[in-house]
Write a protein that binds this DNA or RNA. Sequence first.
DNA 1: AATCGGACCAACCGCACGACA
DNA 2: TTGTCGTGCGGTTGGTCCGAT
Length: 328
Amino acid sequence: MGRPPCCDKLGVKKGPWTPEEDIMLVSYVQQHGPGNWRQVPTNTGLSRCSKSCRLRWTNYLRPGIRRGDFTDDEEKMIIQLQALLGNKWAAIASYLPERTDNDIKNYWNTHLRKKLTKLQMGSEEHDLLHKKKDRFMSSTTSSSSSHGISRGQWEKRLQTDIHLAKQALNDALSLDHKPIVVPQIIKPSTQTPVYPSSTDNIAKLLKGFMKNTSNNHKTCSNASTRESSDEGNGLSSESKPCSGIDLSEALESLFGFDRSFGSPNDSDFSQSNTSPEGSMFQGERKEELQFMMFENWLLNESDGGVVNQGKEELSNFSFDETTDFFGN
DNA sequence: AATCGGACCAACCGCACGACA
DNA sequence: TTGTCGTGCGGTTGGTCCGAT
């Protein structure tokens, strides 16, 4: 047996992705859709392992990904779900369609685990206090009851725990009536794919690319990573062409603005904005208009995207239906 | 200003599994 | 039935950032 490596180890680039590589990958996925990752390195010319390409796409470039700080609601959900499901990050991520499993996993490992440990320490101290008190009480009354719990009691406690967990999850899911995708109903990974990159991701990608190409004779390292996670919505007024490369050229080469969005053959894009505005770009406001159009296109996509579809379906979903899921 | 150590996170690694020939 | 391929998943690593000293 022994599977061959997904690609030759020799000549495969590792480490952080450059904006150029991101753009190559995004434009390829836009044309062909995600999948058949083995062909991606050869077809794109990327010196990357197919697996690396897939990971980069799913964890970073994929549309609909939200990056940055987790909200309190998300945090609560993760905690509850982790308590219920364990380290099933993919399962947990399916409840938070805007987050990747990797993100959730990292957030858990870096923030929540510590937080919970602290809390647990606090409650353990509290318990310890109670136990000391109980021990004192039992020593003064009976001697048999302090040795653990009987099987019946354990089962009863387990049932209570399950009930509490269910209740907790229910609470978490109904936080602010925020609709949540339930995996039994919605499988984000199997949604009809749409391949415009997310507003944030591509904008930042381009931004990073512009910045880097402007200093491309200095260094071009991790521009797309940290920067992107710390900034808000990417398409800011900062996104102006840098010296050395014309933004419109980049957009045109990436998305074919002057032709229209997507080729006629590309059904994934046929639903996108194919307005004739593309040909209206003229003169000094061309770039600005392109950006606006680009932004609208992306926003429109995300409006009808996976997340909202999930929300809509979930709004028709009663949490009581999950009783089987929990084995009741 | 330099150094150090912890925090953070993108990316990698290896295993598992389903689909398919 | 078996082997291969494509992909998903969870754990881990390594690079970068940033605050403390």
